[in-house]
Each structure stands twice: as structure tokens, then as C-alpha cells.
Simulated scan of single mutants.
Amino acid sequence: MKSLLGLLGALALSLGLATQSPAAERGPVTNLPLPRFVSMKASEGNIRRGPSLTHRIDWVFKRKDVPLEITAEHGHWRRVRDRDGAGGWIHYSLLSGVRTAIVEEDLLDLHAKPDPSTLVVARLEFGVIARIESCSVDWCRISAGGYTGWSPKSAIWGVRPRETLD
């Protein structure tokens, strides 16, 4: 009975009928963690109401490399949301596993080391998309516009608060 409930929960999540629950920590299609971050591979992608071409297009993401959070899977479709919580279903071929982040504060200081007292190597404007190179518990090494440095994790969107990346 427990496994049936887990299957029903995963099915409801993949169809967008439920929120994440402990029984649905991995995607039913990829077996990857849910939720998880990805980025837009394409420069344009239709966001649909449901996981098929027959569903209405609600809007179009028009920014390559923008970070998105996958919250559900259904066949070749992924339900995603952006930093504002807007989202819908997108075909998996338009997504990339490359990790990016979007700057959430104006004139974010990039430091030479993961320490606020170190040299500032660059300042990034609000909304800049940066590639994530690695993350410790509180800091991420990111690159944008030819500059690379360390940002407090709290100043970017595209990585979980306690997530670490090598």
C-alpha cells in the first residue's frame, strides 16, 4: 500500500496536481532530484499549461542561460519556474544541465576569495546571469562578462541555500 501511495504522489506531482512530498524526491522519468536547477539551452522556449504540444502556450522565455528550477517531470516535459515563481511546462530539449545563477542585488561585489574582506574583482548589476563554477555552503564561485569571483550564495538565485557544487 505504501508503494502505491508513493506512486500516486509521484504521478500527481508530475502532472502538476500536487506539491513536492517526501515520497517524490526523485523525478519519475530521470530519477534525478526534484526540485533541481537547470538553465535554458535555447534562446527561446515556449512555456505551456501542460506537458504536451496540445496545451496552450502561456508565454515564451526569451533569455538563453537563464536559471530555472525543475519541479516536476512527465515524459519529455519538465515543469519549471523562474526566480519570480512564474512557470509551466517546457520540452526537455530546450534545457541544459549547465548551472547558472541570476544576480539578485544591485552591484554585487565579486570577491577574490570566499570572504567579504578580500579584494573585490568585479561588480555585477542586478539581473546579470552568471555561470556557477562551484559552491561551498555559503559562497559560490561564479563567472560573468570575463570576470570570475566569489559571491555570497544569498545574493544569487539558481542554487539551494545549503547546496554544494564542485
Rank of each mutant, 00 (worst) to 15 (best):
M1Q: 12
L5M: 10
L5T: 01
L5D: 10
G6A: 09
L7W: 04
L7T: 10
L7M: 04
L8H: 05
L11S: 08
A12D: 09
T19P: 01
T19K: 13
Q20G: 09
A23P: 09
E25I: 11
R26S: 11
G27I: 05
V29A: 10
T30P: 06
N31T: 05
N31G: 13
L32F: 08
L32T: 08
P33E: 08
L34C: 09
R36E: 05
F37D: 07
F37L: 14
K41T: 09
K41F: 12
S43P: 02
S43E: 03
G45S: 15
G45E: 02
N46G: 09
I47F: 11
P51N: 05
L53P: 04
R56K: 08
R56A: 07
I57K: 15
V60D: 09
F61N: 13
K62T: 15
R63C: 03
D65K: 14
V66Y: 13
L68Y: 08
T71C: 05
T71W: 06
E73K: 02
E73M: 02
H74Y: 14
H74E: 10
H74Q: 15
H76P: 08
H76R: 14
R78I: 09
R79P: 01
R79C: 02
R83T: 10
D84A: 15
A86G: 03
A86H: 11
G88I: 12
G88V: 14
W89G: 10
I90G: 03
I90W: 06
H91V: 06
H91D: 14
L95Q: 03
L95A: 05
S96Y: 03
S96D: 08
G97M: 06
V98N: 06
R99L: 13
T100F: 00
I102A: 07
V103F: 00
E105L: 07
L107F: 04
D109I: 00
D109W: 01
D115A: 11
T118W: 00
A122S: 14
A122Y: 01
L124P: 01
E125F: 07
F126V: 00
F126W: 12
G127V: 12
G127I: 10
V128H: 10
A130F: 04
S134K: 11
C135T: 08
S136Y: 11
V137D: 10
D138A: 14
I142W: 01
S143G: 07
Y147A: 15
G149F: 03
G149P: 03
K153T: 01
K153Y: 00
S154M: 03
I156C: 04
W157G: 13
G158W: 00
V159P: 01
R162A: 14
R162M: 13
E163D: 11
T164R: 14
D166Y: 07
